Computed example of a mutant assay.
Amino acid sequence: MNDAQGKITTTQAVVIIVNYMLGAGILTLPRTTSKAVGTPDVWISIIVSGMIITGVGIILVTLCRRFPEKTVFQFTREITGRWIAYILGCAMILYFMVIAAFEIRVMADVTGMYLLERTPTWAIVMVFMWIGIYLISGGLSVILRVFEIILPITLVIFVMEILLSNQLFEIGNLRPVLGDGILPVIKGLKPTLLSYTGYEVMLVITAYMQNPKQSNKAMTWGLAISTAVYLITVVMVVGSLSLDGIKTRTWPTLDLVRSFEIQGLIFERFESLLLVIWIMQIFSTFAITHYCASVGIRDLFKAKKMGRIMYVLLPIIYVTAMIPKNVDETFALGDTLGNASVLLFAILPLVLLIISMIRKKGGKHA
């Protein structure tokens, strides 16, 4: 391992996966999946997608364990040769950079719409980017400490708020189950699979684990927690707002939390509280993707100082974040990223694993 920082535990790896995965997607997941499925069986698509991604994730960490203490940017050249490794490595670096830009733009759009009205998008983006660079310049151990604070707060408050909407919940909105057969569930797999982007962080993080043998466990737990959160969200949003009521809403999860109030509590309206924790969550995704892109450039081009790389990436990520002219273009960018993630992190690791076995590259499974 070429990073002077300490190794991370299995639990910390789970925290990173969940923090990365629960980004902007959860705010739009009920709408995108409902449009694709067209029936109340959205929740089945979530479960099936979670199982598929778990299988993909296990293949990914199996590949990483063949090359202990090396990131994907380092061991790919052993499998494919230098030039192909450069092409694949640059594609992954570009992916992480654009994900960082996408997350920061979504955060700016949501913040501008609900919290900081008439504040220019560029101002919100720049503030969060400078806070992000301050965090990641401390290295992986500092990022982890922040993540370990953010995640429990997010999970407790988010699940509590979603479950408080049970006064609006009607089980009839989730019926009939499989009324139109299995085909709508299959149609819903693509948008739900795209919401699971985040497991690919293990291509970098496995190199820093204390016990790489536990990477399967970390991947499984990380995906299980994310699937549970997605499932609770979709069931409550569809059950409360109905299938037809979701399709026309840009941020249905936020709309659900805005649609009820509890008399007598400290907070009667909950959307501001949800936005605060979700801004932290999207910020987490931005921070780890910016960090992974910096690690990629360092490892691929064998640079010595990563601090400079982080600062060089700032203007590139900023310009990318400002390219979408409106929310629709931002969503289109998100769809493109989802498709790219399927190619880069679902198909490619399997191909690399097969080639490494055929060419007998890498050690036995750690």
Rank of each mutant, 00 (worst) to 15 (best):
G6Y: 06
G6N: 13
I8G: 05
I8R: 10
T10C: 12
A13L: 13
V15D: 10
I16E: 08
Y20E: 13
L29P: 03
P30D: 07
R31Y: 02
T33P: 02
K35Y: 04
V37L: 02
G38L: 04
T39R: 05
D41A: 01
D41C: 00
W43A: 05
I44K: 05
I47T: 10
I53E: 11
T54N: 11
G55R: 00
R65Y: 06
R65N: 14
R66T: 02
F67Y: 12
Q74P: 10
F75N: 04
T76W: 03
T80W: 06
I87G: 13
M92E: 08
Y95L: 11
A101K: 02
M107Y: 05
A108P: 11
M113P: 00
M113Q: 13
A123N: 06
I124Y: 04
V125Y: 10
V127G: 15
F128T: 03
M129R: 04
I131L: 14
G132H: 01
I133Q: 14
Y134G: 01
R145P: 03
V146Q: 10
F147T: 04
L151E: 13
L164C: 05
S165F: 01
N166R: 12
L183P: 03
V185G: 13
K190M: 14
T197G: 15
G198F: 02
E200I: 03
M202Y: 08
L203P: 02
I205H: 01
Q210A: 07
S215V: 00
A224W: 09
A224V: 01
L231N: 09
V235N: 04
V235R: 06
V238W: 03
D244L: 05
T250D: 15
V257D: 15
F260W: 09
E261C: 03
R269L: 12
F270C: 08
S272W: 14
L273W: 05
L273A: 08
L273R: 07
V276G: 15
V276F: 15
Q281I: 00
A287M: 09
I288K: 09
I297F: 12
L300E: 11
A303C: 12
K304G: 03
M310H: 04
L313C: 04
K325C: 12
L337A: 01
L337E: 09
A340C: 12
S341C: 07
S341G: 12
V342C: 10
L352V: 02
I358E: 14
K360Q: 14
A366I: 04
